[in-house]
């Protein structure tokens, strides 16, 4: 699934990072605990999280993830935007809950 399609499915808005609409993504990881992300997310996955702290972006960069989506319309902190810009990691915000986001993306063919 392309990053662009994910954006449409989640009615999300990109708020920071490089635009990479054509980026192909196959897997997603839904988590708020960063150790969980580090332990279980595979490189190239999409991270769906409710944690809007800069740590979410740093962890995603460390785990070589493809992009991050903040759920439930949570506004990223300023430091978080800066961290995303620095690493180039595409960062999105959706109004949908984590549950609804996972459901829609699973339905659309993403796995995790």
């Amino acid at each position: 699934m392309r990053l662009q399609d994910i954006k449409v499915q989640l009615e999300a808005e990109q708020v920071a990072g490089s635009p990479r609409p054509e980026l192909e993504i196959k897997e997603a990881c839904a988590a708020d605990l960063m150790s969980d992300v580090l332990a279980s997310a595979r490189p190239g996955s999409l991270l769906l999280t409710g944690l809007t702290h800069p740590q979410a972006v740093r962890v995603a960069a460390l785990a070589s993830l493809a992009a991050v989506v903040f759920v439930q319309g949570k506004e990223p902190l300023r430091d978080t935007l800066v961290a995303a810009e620095e690493s180039g990691l595409p960062l999105f915000v959706t109004q949908l809950s984590l549950f609804e986001s996972c459901g829609r993306l699973y339905q659309a063919g993403l796995r995790g």
Binding site: A28, C29, A30, L48, Q72, L96, S97, L98, F99, E100, C102, G103, R104, L105, Y106, Q107, L110, R111, G112
Partner: peptide, 15 residues
């Protein structure tokens, strides 16, 4: 992610 996906398949919805 997977568990939620499967719940969604059963018709369980979030917000």
């Amino acid at each position: 992610f997977r568990v939620v996906g499967e719940l969604w398949d059963l018709g369980i919805r979030g917000e």
